[in-house]
Design a protein around this nucleic acid. Structure first.
Length: 253
DNA sequence: ATGGCCTTTATCAAAGGA
């Protein structure tokens, strides 16, 4: 089974790129973030034509998550958690006996800001949600844009400043607390090399210089660890005209 | 460098992203 996460930065702008990529890559499950699209405007037909079922949770202008699946998918609604607030940032789908948890973690703007506090609170609630899901489900895949580079090798050496956004101690601690629930960062299961990034700033022509951050992740619950066959970052789309600033991550299991 | 670039919108300037 091939499972993908990609922050598309607008589903409508990236629609042709995405459908072309799906045809050549043929993933089974695709978790998208920053669709920036309300559910009734989501281009579902473009994907049903290709044989995918679609579940989505979107809003105008900001945020928005969606999961495309070639296998039957059931949307799960978790009640009793307030993780979403007014933001559409979490979507849970059941595919076979896997629980697919698509997340778009808040960006946090800058360390110490209100948005940073919101990010930390949001991560705390994500942890509680995952803790609850683990009580009933063994096979869980949590994937998406975490907006956290977990280790020093996960960001460009141009940024040494401690406590910058995406690399601050508190963000990294929150990420590791989630791993400690019983998840594994599947990319690092296979690849220990530095300079492996999933996001490059549009502004400084960062992609050409490979000055980036590895902030998009696919976490698998511990029981799935041995099933994983590979996990790679596909940088091909980032070099196209009008690219998303993120690259897809592909897990095979 | 308070930068840059891309996307969206009760647009044509401002906000959010990371």
């Amino acid at each position: 089974m091939k499972i993908v996460t990609w922050n598309v930065n607008s589903i409508r702008v990236r629609l042709e790129q995405l459908t072309n990529w799906i045809k050549s890559t043929t993933p089974d499950v695709i978790a998208l973030q920053e669709t920036k699209c309300e559910d009734d405007k989501f281009p579902i037909d473009a994907f049903t034509t290709l044989g995918y079922q679609v579940i989505c949770s979107g809003q105008k202008t900001f945020n928005g998550v969606a999961i495309l699946s070639r296998l039957p998918i059931i949307k799960h609604v978790e009640s009793g958690y307030v993780i979403e607030h007014d933001h559409k940032r979490v979507l849970i789908g059941e595919v076979k006996d896997y629980l697919i948890v698509d997340v778009y973690v808040p960006n946090g703007q800058s360390v110490g800001s209100d948005k940073y506090q919101f990010k930390l609170e949001w991560l705390k609630e994500l942890k509680i949600l995952l803790q609850r899901l683990l009580q009933k489900n063994k096979k869980i895949i949590v994937l998406g844009d975490f907006n956290i580079a977990p280790e020093t090798i996960d960001h460009t050496s141009a940024n040494f400043i401690r406590d910058e956004i995406m690399i601050s101690d508190k963000e990294r601690q929150a990420f590791h607390e989630i791993l400690d629930l019983g998840f594994c960062d599947s990319f690092r299961f296979f690849d220990k090399e530095p300079k492996k990034y999933t996001w490059w700033d549009y502004r400084i022509r960062a992609f050409e210089k490979n000055l980036g951050y590895r902030i998009d992740h696919i976490l698998v619950s511990d029981v799935l660890k041995d099933q994983c066959k590979s996990c790679v970052i596909d940088t091909s789309l980032r070099g196209l005209e009008k690219p998303s600033d993120h690259a897809p991550v592909i897990l095979e299991l």
